[in-house]
């Protein structure tokens, strides 16, 4: 187990560097002269000679004339020290730019995950138990529809019904403008604003997880030990919940862990449609404004999240299910 984990971590570090090289070279393919961008506002106040000197100096400071490899070395050492550079749009260190949206994203996602699991797990179990009944078939069809309809279309429909027609919920932001309340009042106001995006996030994730839970549960129910349990004369409740569900839990837990890792990345569509200042929206805005230091930082962060997520999922197989033995 320890050996396997160490092996995986070494491999992760390797992948991280490969990805950083790839992203860095991509980043340097962007057309445009960043030194010129930096000094251009000074142009009016300086003589051409002074300006030229300043420009060359800036180029040197930014290291734009160094060979690509040297620049990568410089950049990656800075990144490893968590010095991710400055945001060109907000003129603040990237770390400071990224932290507040991440908090918002995590806050929203925790609610969405709790809601979604609260609905999908009972639903998945019920459909698996009553497999091929009308109820099951209806849910199957609905879930196909559910995971086929793009998130933004679901969001458009919800906005149309609940914000435009019924006027129950606002369409944008986290709080009422200039809101100053604290404690309970703040929570109420935030929840009123987040009701719609949270509902949409929950609804769009229902279909996939329900199907997954159903498949896992159906597999578990077809096992011989279920027949044994029934033959022993156990109550149906105990067969379903303590025999089948415990075994179905394994694949479900790995799914949930993988899914929880995604809460850091945020949801692009919903955050940008509802003007929530989360990670997804920050990423889109930074791409649109060509604020590439931020983009690069977020992208590297995603890579780390992805790798760590994979590792945790793999390790959790072993932790959750004693039958699975992981070794090199």
């Amino acid at each position: 187990m320890v050996k396997y984990t160490i092996k995986r971590i070494i491999y992760m570090i390797f992948v991280f560097f490969v990805m950083s090289i790839l992203l860095f070279f991509l980043y340097n393919k962007i057309p445009g002269d960043r030194a010129m961008q930096e000094v251009f506002p000074m142009r009016e106040r300086l003589t051409p000679e002074q300006f030229q000197r300043l420009y060359e100096q800036t180029r040197m400071e930014m290291g734009l004339d160094d060979p690509l490899v040297t620049r990568y070395q410089k950049w990656i050492t800075q990144v490893l020290k968590l010095n991710l550079g400055m945001s060109e749009r907000q003129h603040r260190p990237v770390i400071d730019v990224v932290i507040p949206p991440m908090k918002i994203t995590i806050f929203i996602n925790i609610f969405a995950i709790i809601l979604a699991l609260g609905i999908t797990i009972p639903l998945g179990i019920r459909t698996a138990v009553r497999k091929d009944s009308t109820f099951d078939r209806t849910v199957q069809v609905l879930t196909i529809v559910g995971y086929s309809i793009p998130t933004f279309i679901v969001a458009l429909m919800f906005i149309y019904i609940f914000a435009v027609k019924l006027r129950w919920f606002p369409v944008s932001g986290m709080n009422t403008a200039n809101f100053t309340g604290t404690g309970w009042a703040w929570f109420k106001d935030t929840m009123h604003h987040l009701a719609l995006p949270l509902t949409i996030m929950t609804v769009t994730s229902l279909a996939g997880i329900t199907r997954y839970v159903r498949a896992a549960m159906a597999d578990a129910l077809s096992m011989d030990y279920i027949k044994t349990a029934r033959a022993k004369g156990l109550s149906e409740k105990s067969v379903i919940y303590s025999h089948a569900w415990r075994n179905a839990l394994l694949p479900v837990i790995t799914l949930i862990i993988g899914w929880i890792m995604s809460i850091f990345s945020g949801t692009f569509i919903i955050e940008s449609m509802f003007s929530i200042n989360g990670m997804g929206r920050l990423y889109i805005d930074s791409l649109n404004f060509k604020d590439f230091n931020v983009v690069l930082a977020i992208q590297m962060f995603y890579v780390i999240i992805g790798l760590v997520g994979n590792l945790i999922v793999d390790l959790s197989y072993g932790i959750v299910d004693p039958r699975v033995r992981i070794d090199g």
Partner: peptide, 15 residues
């Protein structure tokens, strides 16, 4: 392990 949507976005935006 690459997050799909962000990576597709960055490729489309940069290239």
């Amino acid at each position: 392990s690459l997050p799909f949507l962000p990576f597709a976005m960055i490729l489309n935006a940069l290239i």
